[in-house]
């Protein structure tokens, strides 16, 4: 009984919402204001998960989709860029493929992102600009959302692979409550 209530209240506290730039933490606004001019279609989001809060700005830059994540205090956490799996370096790609093939009966990639983890030494501006200009010296992790099948069970998971393509961890994503109105 107690457990079920706990689970319920957890789902209730999870929320992602679109907000305005002015609702962003001040430190994050400063970073956003300094983004290159050709960053287009900026959209601001706030995510709440229990007591944890985070902020995210999504934008397009030179036809690529980025998402920059901030902590509650406006410190950058990471910068992710949407990529196609086939464009990943051959060696890393085959390692990742090898992991999927050996771990699951069936798999289907849904979304692939390169994840650049924030390096404080660089400072916000240099970090973001290096990634946007493709001159970053840090190799990115890979964040991959995939549908996988083990025995009879099927679920959607978010996997993290490190900069050389080695599996780090995964978490199971909740099937979205947003189901198509089929009937």
């Amino acid at each position: 009984m107690f457990i079920s209530q706990f689970v319920f209240s957890q789902t209730k506290n999870e929320k992602e919402e679109r907000i305005t730039k002015s609702e962003f933490p001040d430190a994050a606004i400063a970073v956003v204001n300094n983004l290159p001019e050709n960053c287009k279609r900026l959209k601001f989001y706030k995510e709440t998960d229990g007591n944890k809060q985070s902020f995210e700005v999504k934008f397009k830059h030179k036809r690529k989709r980025y998402s920059l994540e901030f902590s509650k205090d406006g410190v950058i956490e990471d910068l992710e860029v949407l990529t196609k799996f086939k464009t990943i370096n051959e060696e890393k790609k085959s390692k990742i493929e090898g992991y999927f093939k050996s771990s699951f009966n069936k798999y289907k990639l849904i979304k692939v992102q390169k994840q650049f983890v924030y390096n404080e030494e660089l400072g916000a501006l240099t970090f973001v600009n290096d990634v946007l200009d493709n001159t970053s010296t840090e190799a990115p992790n890979f964040e991959i959302i995939a549908e996988v099948k083990t025995n009879k069970k099927r679920d959607i998971r978010e996997f993290t692979f490190d900069e050389s393509g080695i599996f780090v961890n995964f978490r199971i994503l909740k099937p979205t409550s947003f189901e198509h109105v089929l009937y």
């Binding site: 209730k12 992602e16 919402e17 679109r18 409550s177």
Partner: peptide, 20 residues
């Protein structure tokens, strides 16, 4: 052919509205 989206953000959370 159908199109749907939540009215707030990219994910439909409890208490939120959507369009179909």
């Amino acid at each position: 052919f159908a199109l749907d989206f939540p009215l707030n953000g990219e994910k439909l959370d409890i208490g939120e509205a959507y369009f179909v």
